[in-house]
Write a protein that binds this DNA or RNA. Structure first.
Lengths: 125, 125
DNA sequence: CATTGACTTAGAGCGCACTCTAAGTTCTAG
DNA sequence: CTAGAACTTAGAGTGCGCTCTAAGTCAATG
């Protein structure tokens, strides 16, 4: 007997992850849930710790503008097992470059916004 | 006589700004072009240096996730003249906070991605 | 002065990522 | 054992930001 693997309902999972229940179901339908979410004593979903961790990583991929289709590619690689590790690494390294580029662009834009803010502050003196 | 204010056609403006001619017309229709783009010797648009500079700044607002509607708010303030400077400053300061938050979230996501990359690299040894 | 290519408008269409609805089923509290 | 809340599915709807189309006008070139 373990106390581990709490196994959450979809609304609990939604609360933990900050996503809506709609979005969690949508992600599952789109094939983004690594192993398929378990169903407990019925048709109701049960989210394991592993499911929650994966959703959290998935959210990080999404928040760095990885499209759903690319996330699915990654998921498909994971499903293929250890043999796909090099491909997963390549995919993440490519994505990493895109994140760096986004950070760079956003930083440059911030500088332009700060410059404009400075002119407004100067003008008000 | 000056050599300044080159005044570009829409396709030249598109080339300079990296936007499509479709998008430039769309932005104008949406009321995002500060003073209204001039028409030269006909109905054809002529983009002044000021227009181009504005499009460049507008692009920075957009690339930091400012919605079109918010850009339009900003434009409306600019049209109201100097009297709106405090409001423009407030709008940009608020947006600045959102940009900082986005940079922060993206940086955290990058760390998670880098961590995953590291596990793949370690595993392959 | 005709052809050809860039331009014009109004409006329809598209892709993405959700977000919601409807109709029905299942769990939980009293 | 029943009422009500929470869950289920399939599929429709939404919002945003473009992106494209159609039908026509304008202008520079041979």
């Amino acid at each position: 007997m373990t106390l581990v693997d709490a196994s959450l309902s979809i609304s609990e999972a939604a609360e933990r992850t900050g996503l809506s229940t709609h979005t969690l179901r949508y992600y599952e339908r789109e094939g983004l849930m690594l192993g398929g979410v378990g169903r407990a004593s019925s048709t109701h979903r049960r989210y394991s710790d592993a499911d929650i961790s994966w959703v959290e990583f998935l959210t990080k991929l999404r928040s760095t503008s990885m499209p759903i289709a690319k996330v699915r590619e990654y998921v498909d690689l994971v499903r293929r097992g250890d043999v796909s590790t090099p491909e997963r690494l390549a995919l993440l390294l490519t994505h990493r470059e895109s994140v760096i580029a986004q950070l760079d662009e956003m930083t440059k834009s911030l500088a332009a916004i700060d410059f404009k803010i400075a002119t407004y502050k100067k003008g008000s003196k």
